[in-house]
Design a protein around this nucleic acid. Structure first.
Lengths: 137, 137
DNA sequence: ATTAATGCAAACACTTTGCAATGGA
DNA sequence: TCCATTGCAAAGTGTTTGCATTAAT
């Protein structure tokens, strides 16, 4: 379990349940997914609280926001440097733990100060590939 | 000018003006930005028409949607393979015309069928860097 | 006792939809 | 003429905000 208290933040049951849901989660859930899941054990949980907590965690650097899906925000508690594989059909996002050499020339950088990078691969996931071949069109 | 007629689509003045605005544009505008600009010369232009046209162009593969900004959709008429540099302060998106070796092992691919990839770099653009150093905090 | 966090509802921003009117082909 | 496209307004989605209440410290 992440140490939340050490950050000088109040340790509410709501936050605890969001944290434990996120712990080790590799599914890049949206705020709404987190809310739905956590609501089961905590029916009064408000969506606003989910957003608040996510925002706080993001600011603390304990969470990354993934901007891959134009429809909704997704969150990633995996702090190790990694990249993503996105299924164009079902929108599933998988981690890809590979290091790439993304060296840039001075010219390419155009005067930017680079602070990070991220690679996304698009494709079709195994499940969706199976559905396609199995289907009679 | 892109050949729109050849696609079997009606060549309306609205579409023509959107197309000419997009032609050679390297600013990755949002629908709203496109609408604002095009409205100057075409005051009755509807936002719905902008979205319609963008959707059509996207389906035709004459345009790519960039999912970098969680707040709004951005569109990129640059069809050459390229990547992006995003300013974390002002959200400006610049093209970066570099080829990377993004080879993946079978294992890393996790059964996906890869169809494309995209690299995004985060950082601070020259303008925002200047503002920072010039400012008295 | 303090003060931050919660929950609700209302407000927001962006995008999509329904549909009658319009105008390219 | 015909049917796709337009423009408007209304509806829809995801997210944020205001604020009184609650509860962690």
């Amino acid at each position: 379990m992440m140490k939340y208290k050490e950050l000088g933040l109040k340790l509410t049951p709501q936050r605890l349940s969001i944290l434990s849901y996120l712990e080790g989660n590799r599914e890049h859930p949206s705020a709404e997914e987190i809310h739905r899941k956590v609501s089961r054990k905590f029916p009064t949980m408000s969506l606003a609280t989910v957003y608040n907590t996510l925002e706080t965690l993001k600011r603390q650097g304990r969470l990354t926001e993934i901007t891959i899906d134009p429809d909704k925000r997704h969150f990633d508690p995996n702090l190790e440097k990694h990249h993503h594989l996105i299924c164009s059909k079902c929108k599933r996002i998988a981690d890809i733990q590979v290091e790439f050499d993304l060296a840039l020339t001075e010219e390419a950088i155009q005067g930017f100060e680079i602070t990070g990078s991220h690679v996304e691969f698009y494709g079709t996931c195994p499940d969706c590939r199976n559905k396609e071949t199995g289907e009679v069109k």
